[in-house]
Structures are given as C-alpha cells and as structure tokens.
Design a protein around this nucleic acid. Structure first.
Lengths: 174, 174
DNA sequence: TATAAGGGTCAGCCATGTTGACGTATATAT
DNA sequence: ATATATACGTCAACATGGCTGACCCTTATA
C-alpha cells in the first residue's frame, strides 16, 4: 500500500523550476498548515490552564526556560525569548509577585540575576509540562519512532544555523 | 553509525511510568522546543516583509486562507482562524481598504460573502508564500523525503480528530 | 578611573485578541 | 405568511504582550 504521506512524484505536478529548493506548492502549504494547526492545538490546553491562573503564554515561556535551565540569567532568557527586556521585565515581576520564581545574584558576576522556580512555580510548570507531554506523547506514539526522528530533523532544518547552538545549549548542563 | 535523532532506549533513562503515553521528559522538551523555535524562525522572514507593508500576522493568515480556498465565506474563514468575528472584521476591512481582497455575495445563499484576493493581494500573498517556500523547501531538502513524511505524521497527531476534516478540506476543491 | 555590561524602570504606543450588545438581510420551517 | 434562525457587520470597552525611547544603578574590566 502506498504511503499516504509520500510526496507525489514530480511528474504528476506542475514543475516550478529545476532547483530542488523549489518543491511543489502543495507540499509547502501542507507543512505550513500542519505546523500552524499542530502548534496552536498543542498549546490550547496550556492556554486554558494558564488562563485559570490569570497568566498568559508569555509567563509560560519564561517558566519553561527557567525550569529547563535553572539559574539561567536574565540575559540568557532574553536571548531565548527574543523579546525586549522591558517586555520580559513585566513578565518576571508578575511571576515574582506571585511567588512563582525567585532570583539571586550571580556567583562569579554579581551584576547577573540567576532565575529559579520556587516550589509553587515548579508545581505549576510541572502541570503545564504535563499538558505538553499529553499532546506530544500521543502524537509520538501514533506516529512511531521513525516519524519522530523525521519530525525533529525537519524542524531543525527550519532553524538558522546560527541559532542552533543556543538551542543545543538547552540540552546541556547548566 | 547511530542515528543521532533516535530516542535513546528507555533503560538509559528515568522511567516515568509504564504507559507508552508517558515518554521521557527529554523527548517531550525537545519536540516542544523545536516546534517553538522552528515555527518562530519560519515566520520571521514573513513578519519582516509584512511589517514593510504595515501589516501583521493576522493579515497574513487571512490572505493565506483566502489564497488557499478562493471564494471561501467569512464563516469558513472564522472556523480556520478560530478568532471572533469582531477581530476578523478589523482585519478584513483593513485588507479591503488596501485593495488586497474583494467580496461578492454568495451564489446559492446571498447572506454569505465570498472572499477573494485582488490582483495586488495575490501578488503580495505570492511573495509571502515564497518566504514559506524558502524555509520549508530548505528544511525538506536537508531532511529528506522520509523525514518529511514523519514530520507530517507527528504534526497530524497533534491535531484533535475533530479538527482534521477541516484541515483536509483545504486540500480539496473549493 | 573611565567605560562597558547586566539589569531595572517609567511612559507611551501598537497589534490583536476578548465580551457584550445590537442591527440588517436573507433563509427556512411551521 | 410569519416566526425564527443564520450570516454578517459594527460600536464600545478592555486585556495581553509586543515595541521604542530615555534614563538609572551596580559591578566588571581595560
């Protein structure tokens, strides 16, 4: 039986040019749409849970990266989020007021602030992470190991080379 | 050589439980991060181009779906975008004022409005689509056909079953 | 000791989402 | 024929989370 996910052979389609960088429009649109709907549906459960606490996605992103890399600095967090420090400042002070995060001065550089989740912050992040786990585990299980590898590979290809080290740094110790 | 994208065997990791729905935290975080960064990087070029025209992402989403399904109705577009009609109304009137879209009454139901791109709207959408094409073609080419299939399969698994028919409808004639 | 770097903050603006209330034209069921 | 539902539009007020610009303090470092 034919793989329903396979890109159809070029000869059945309008050719846009000779370059392999110009694939059929349908494959591009399919990826764009699945990415859009997949992403929004994955975050839907999280948005609901956040709304119950009076928090938004911006708060979740900060909690997520702080959970992922405890004691990261404000500057590092800014690089992950790619927003202005004014925007982040608002988010961090709200999280601090709600006792979800706490800071302490940097060890080797006391200008820095090291960010950590409090106990209640960690509890909330764990709940939010569980929503991610539900969605992704389900999709991984349905799709199978080989598909998961492909999923990662394509997504990595969407990220400019200069940003990959930053993301790889998330998977290393502090 | 070992596939660097393969999920490491369970016995090397903390087991969270017996259910296959609860995979290792690292695999979940990896997917979440790649999805987040991949999506934002893919849309970065588009955001830049839109900003030059004084438009935003909301405008692009509307243009995209209208291009994808010419003569779709306002109600259909609302279902794709999952926003309120007030929000969409603002976007559509801005697009109309800039002569990027046009409407005509429904054929069988004159309460409906059928949405179409104007010539200049189609030109703009084509430019924006080209940014998508650049990003996705590049990622597809680097990852290879098998990975693209897996990419699609996992993303589909993130989408609730009740939403899949709507998305499938995009790939059928108007 | 001057300058750079990490971080904070005030003020104002913009884009894009939300509710709620209400209006009009057209379909459709009784 | 008339009542009701549907498709769409619109006014008003508000929330979130981005942005720029200007300016401040503390600590490193050349």
């Amino acid at each position: 039986m034919a793989d329903p996910y396979k890109i159809e052979s070029r000869d059945r389609n309008v050719s846009i040019g000779a370059s392999p960088l110009f694939l059929r429009e349908d494959e591009i649109r399919r990826g764009a749409e699945l990415l859009y709907f997949g992403y929004t549906r994955l975050t839907a459960a999280i948005d609901t849970r956040l709304a119950k606490q009076g928090l938004g996605r911006a708060h979740h992103r900060a909690l997520y990266f702080i959970a992922r890399k405890p004691d990261l600095t404000v500057g590092e967090l800014l690089r992950f989020l790619a927003i202005t420090k004014q925007s982040l400042g608002r988010v961090l002070s709200e999280l601090t007021n709600r006792d979800l995060i706490e800071t302490r001065p940097g060890l080797s550089d006391r200008r820095q602030k090291l960010l950590r989740l409090t106990e209640s912050g960690a509890a909330l992040e764990a709940q939010l992470f569980d929503d991610l786990r539900q969605g992704l585990s389900n999709a991984y299980t349905k799709a199978g190991q080989d598909s998961v590898s492909g999923f990662w590979r394509v997504l990595e290809g969407l990220i400019p080379a200069e940003d990959l080290p930053m993301i790889a740094a998330l998977r290393k110790l502090g």
